[in-house]
Write a protein that binds this DNA or RNA. Structure first.
Length: 648
RNA sequence: GCUGCUGUAGCUCAGAGGUAGAGCACUCCCUUGGUAAGGGAGAGGUCGAGAGUUCAAUUCUCUCCAGCAGCACCA
């Protein structure tokens, strides 16, 4: 029998008979590993323990400790186990497909009656029985005709159709979870007992069409979430509750920040409080940009389609653009414009004015660019996904050998902005050349190297995402983690030699020749709207003092204190603090409650004693105890606290 | 965009084939109260829009719009 050589993660190799399975390999290493094994990584493929290995390869045995592999298998096997449970309870239900999702899986069924919440409970119970039975998972490759005959006999028309969709040369793989069988490319766990019976939950039912085709029968989708441990599931459910509690749409209403309405879907009506946060953030970003050598510009909202055709966006994104047609009386043809969906082409127009010299580079053009995109209606979500938004956009025009230092400077700026805004942790994803690309390998080598060197110089860890770059250049994505562990992709840095080419941007090099600059697209917050949504949720509305829209409420306890309350309010306002007086005829309890709900960070209560002593009684949001301060100390302290972090 | 659900007062929601109600918020009155809701009175609604069925529609049916959840999408 032919021998193959398998190389383990520690670098050691061993020979095995060709056709050996990963299960055999695991068992040969140790008995316990044989038991704990759930799958293998064979070269870059996720490999079922039962699949035979026919060639030399690198191999790593996965156990439940390998999070990505474990979660994929758990969720995928649960999809099968759920489908089996459904068919055991309702034998006439037809099965379709059941893929893995971000936190779990779903499976679509064909059944005339809808599933009820009680049904979900019954299905969960049956799933646990299947898990407890520790049924073995078995797999075989079948001949296409046999598989089709099998599913026709079983009365599973969707599976027959699925097989027809599988390309002619691909193997038809069958899986069994105990007696229950499904068509599936795998891999799967070794037996149902490897599934954590207490770490999954069915989350609900929704409708779906077979392959999204409205002319096809309506299916019912059951979704579930699953993790490796009960604790992980509990953490996920707690996170969902937490997220609901701090939902920016709810806080936006409670804090009177903004609203949206039917007449302008996906667009924001900012109220005074919300706009205050917005402009405070914008002022901060403006200072930051100046500090990092950017020049701020502003470009038009409505731009002729000719520019979008030249940039290539018209072809690709026309469906998602707001088209504005202007029919002028004496014009020969109707002018077709689009609201700008992005700023890049406009920035090239600014660059293109006048002859640029290499001495002008790097030229960093920044804009708080208001963009409009016709997002699909189902995608709209509060401030997080809108149709009208403002990017903290900038484009750096530079030479090839400036890319590295520009990238390093950008990461430095981004890190300092995130830190100032209360996010200490962010991750970098580095996307490299895709298969379909333009440009020479040498230039890709150079640019990728430049980015990698820049990241390495910062010492920040990064993750490589090979082949995920744009067709014209590599990019960096920056993901930050919020207070409840959710990840948000915000910042981006992208190297683009393409758009300068398309829009004919050039500069004069030292040798007098005309050269194309590189264009670096970059954003830190992404969009103000979305970032504010994230900021509000991160802080649960309890924004840091410098950015809080209502910083201080001065509340009278007795109406005799009203003049003093007014006086303090004026003193604070003159010191640049956003202060309000509350002299309403209400009890102090009432006022404290109302302003606490409104997330005002500082409440000053003023009664006869304070009037007498010319002091204030200060209470901070969320704290029970109060502090008595004289006016000078108060102003001094609050002034320091109100100073933005970049000016402190 | 797809599927399901929802749309009644500023907010959170109840309700019924004969054109509506609660709590909070709002206005006024009483109350001057020391750190998360004092008491009373009042005002407030084309019941998302349009069409159909009906003697009668906010209620039933259809279409549209918007929102929510999931999916797809996100230059």
């Amino acid at each position: 029998m032919a021998q193959i050589s398998l190389t383990f993660p520690d670098g050691n190799s061993r020979d095995f008979d060709a056709g050996v399975t990963a299960a055999d390999v695991a068992a040969s290493i140790s008995k316990s590993l044989g038991k704990k094994a759930i799958s293998a990584r064979l070269d870059d493929a996720h490999w079922d323990l039962q699949w035979p290995i026919e060639h030399d390869a690198r191999i790593a045995i996965n156990t439940m400790d390998d999070e990505a592999a474990a979660l994929e298998l758990i969720r995928h096997d649960l999809a099968h186990v759920m489908a089996r449970a459904v068919q055991e309870i309702w034998p006439d239900v037809k099965v379709t497909i059941g893929p893995v999702t971000e936190h779990g899986w779903f499976y679509d069924f064909d059944r005339s009656e809808p599933f009820t919440p009680e049904d979900l409970g019954a299905i969960e119970k049956k799933m646990r029985e299947i898990i407890n039975a520790r049924d073995p998972v078995r797999t075989e490759i079948w001949d296409r005709a046999r598989a089709i005959a099998h599913y026709e006999a079983e009365g599973e028309p969707f599976k027959v159709e699925l097989i027809d969709r599988i390309p002619g040369d691909a193997p038809i793989r069958m899986y069994w979870h105990g007696p229950w069988q499904d068509l599936c490319r795998g891999p799967h766990l070794a037996h149902t007992g490897q599934l954590p019976g207490d770490a999954f939950k069915l989350m609900g039912v929704s409708g779906a069409y077979w392959f999204g085709d409205v002319n096809r029968p309506q299916l019912q989708r059951i979704q579930g979430v699953a993790f490796r441990t009960k604790a992980d599931l509990a953490a996920h459910l707690t996170m969902l509750e937490e997220a609901a509690r701090r939902d920016h749409r709810k806080l936006g209403r409670e804090m009177d920040l903004f609203h949206m309405q039917e007449e302008a879907p996906g667009q924001v009506f900012w109220h005074p409080n919300g706009w205050n946060i917005y402009t405070t953030l914008q002022d901060y970003m403006r200072r930051k940009q100046r500090a990092y050598g950017y020049s701020e510009i502003n470009t038009p909202q409505i731009v002729d389609r000719k520019l979008w055709e030249a940039s290539g966006h018209w072809d690709k994104y026309q469906e998602n653009m707001f088209i504005v047609e202007v029919d002028e009386e004496h014009a020969r043809e109707k002018a077709v414009n689009a609201l700008k969906p992005m700023n890049c082409p406009c920035h090239v127009q600014v660059f293109n004015q006048g002859l640029k010299s290499y001495r002008d580079l790097p030229l960093r053009l920044a804009e708080f660019g208001a963009c409009s995109r016709y997002e699909p209606s189902g995608a709209l979500h509060g401030l997080m996904r809108v149709r009208g938004f403002t990017q903290d956009d900038a484009h750096i025009f530079c030479t090839e050998d400036q890319i590295e230092s520009e990238c390093a400077g950008f990461i430095d700026m981004l890190a300092s902005v995130y830190r100032d805004l209360g996010f200490d942790r962010f991750d970098i994803k580095f996307s490299t050349r895709p298969e379909k690309r333009v440009g020479t390998d040498e230039s890709w080598d150079y640019v990728e190297n430049a980015l990698e060197n820049a990241i390495k110089a910062t010492g920040h860890p990064y993750e490589l995402d090979e082949g995920e770059g744009a067709f014209y250049g590599p990019k960096l994505d920056f993901k930050l983690t919020d207070a409840i562990g959710r990840e948000w992709q915000l910042g981006t840095f992208q190297v683009d030699p393409n758009l300068p080419e398309r829009l004919d941007a050039s500069y004069i090099a030292p040798d007098g020749a005309k050269r194309r600059p590189y264009m670096l697209h970059r954003a830190i917050l992404g969009s103000f709207e979305r970032f504010l949504g994230i900021l509000i949720e991160n802080y649960e509305g309890k924004l840091p003092f410098w950015i809080a829209p209502r910083q201080v409420v001065v509340a009278s306890i007795v109406s005799d204190a009203d003049p003093y309350v007014t006086e303090i309010t004026e003193i604070l306002r003159r010191a640049g603090i956003r202060a309000e007086a509350d002299t309403r005829n209400e009890k102090i309890n009432y006022k404290v409650r109302e302003h606490s709900v409104g997330k005002v960070p500082v409440i000053l209560a003023i009664g006869a004693r304070e009037v007498e002593e010319r002091t204030v009684s200060l209470r901070r949001l969320g704290e029970k105890q109060t502090r008595t301060l004289d006016l000078e100390t108060l102003v001094q302290d609050l002034r320091i606290e109100a100073t933005p972090p970049d000016l402190g």
